[in-house]
């Protein structure tokens, strides 16, 4: 995941559902298709819902990294 240039970073570790995805979605709306957003999120519920919702809305998760109970997702904005 280190070889992908990240355009923005969003930390949602202090958010709860549904704000986890709402914040991610709002951030992605400010970006261009093809750009990369690094999302930092917690284990458990956010991890069950955020990747699923990203896929459903046509974005692509191109990289992942686990750090303790946190995950970093590199999201490529869809069209």
């Amino acid at each position: 995941m280190s070889d992908i240039k990240v355009d923005a970073v969003l930390d949602i570790t202090n958010e709860v559902c549904p704000m986890t995805f709402v914040k991610t979605k709002l951030k992605l709306e400010t970006m261009e298709p093809g750009q990369h957003l690094e999302v930092v999120l917690c284990d458990g519920e956010p991890l069950r819902n955020v990747p699923r919702s990203l896929k459903e809305e046509g974005h692509k998760i191109v990289g992942t990294k686990k750090e303790g109970n946190r995950f970093h997702l590199i999201v490529e904005k869809g069209m």
């Binding site: 284990d43 458990g44 991890l47 069950r48 990747p51 992942t64 990294k65 686990k66 995950f71």
Partner: peptide, 12 residues
């Protein structure tokens, strides 16, 4: 599979 470990965390 890329071994990202997300599934193991997602499974309840």
């Amino acid at each position: 599979c890329t071994g990202c470990r997300i599934c193991a965390s997602a499974c309840q």
